[in-house]
Amino acid sequence: MITKEIEFTVNGQLITLDVDIRKSLLDVLREEGLTSIKQGCGVGECGACTALIDDIPMDTCMYLAVWADGKDIRTSEGESRDGQVSKVQQAYIDAGAVQCGYCTPGFIMTSTAFVEKYKGQKVDRDLIRKEHSGNLCRCTGYETIVCAVESCLKD
């Protein structure tokens, strides 16, 4: 087994690991207990494994763990602090954008990056759709997801 020492931050916490180079970031994050990272396809098509790497949404199933060295990683678990869910998470709840919940954490991370990037700018539904097109959902028909993101940009 070939290993490599990497150091990265996950949800604000610095972690040093001697990581098996064969592992995806998905494998490593799940082993760290961050099971909000879901595997829905393993080929970067469904987005259920989305985390933010230096604030950019990435499919962690198609990302070697060794590449995380020096990076800042955020997952859905970390978006909720002191028992308070984030604004994006609350918007998903309020809009009814949560059903089976399997795609939800990945979507939440894509939306979080989107809202941080476009806050205060005029954004239409087409742009919301384009920037969420790497996440699949089968329960909602996406309608309430678009509504949730819109509501985050309103104020």
Partner: peptide, 12 residues
Amino acid sequence: SGTVGGPQVRNV
């Protein structure tokens, strides 16, 4: 480039 896959794919 904007027609490649989805955002996560384009990000890497």
